[in-house]
């Protein structure tokens, strides 16, 4: 399966609660965008690498927030080294790191944050399992 299929079928799918994610993407640790949905905001390699670093040391992100395509999400409690969660108004984002990639999901109003966590972390767990 290609990365794009992962995004289209596993992330931009119908969520357990009936909604759909606003945006989804898979990035490489090097800052490259491997796959994303058509409307995903343009991210710079610097943004990605700042986030990849942020998984291990959240102190910088805690002060300046998670930035994706210029949008700022407030960093809320996640799981150290594995999961970053952000909150912005009624929506938010979930990022989970695998060996070589970062799986990203962004949700909007009306989608429970739990649903976003489930699809993003579920896919990331699968990618970790296959060793990527």
């Amino acid at each position: 399966m290609s990365w794009q299929q992962f995004v289209d079928d596993q992330l931009m799918c119908t969520l357990p609660g009936g909604g759909q994610l606003k945006h989804a993407a898979i990035w490489g640790h090097d800052g490259g965008v491997w796959a994303c949905d058509a409307a995903f905001p343009t991210v710079s390699p610097e943004e990605v690498s700042a986030l990849v670093e942020g998984f291990n040391d959240t102190s910088k992100l805690a002060q300046s927030g998670i930035r994706i395509g210029g949008e700022k999400y407030m960093l809320v409690a996640g799981e150290p080294g594995e999961v970053l969660r952000g909150k912005k108004g009624a929506g938010g984002c979930t990022l989970k790191k695998t060996q070589t990639a970062v799986v990203v999901g962004i949700y909007g109003e009306g989608v429970p944050h739990g649903d976003c966590n489930i699809v993003v972390e579920g896919l990331a767990d699968y990618i970790v399992e296959v060793g990527m």
Binding site: T58, S59, L61, A62, M74, L75, V76, A77, G78, R85, K87, G89
Partner: peptide, 11 residues
């Protein structure tokens, strides 16, 4: 706490 979430690093 921000919008019902505990902020990371703040506890």
């Amino acid at each position: 706490v921000h919008d019902g979430f505990v902020l990371q690093k703040s506890v």
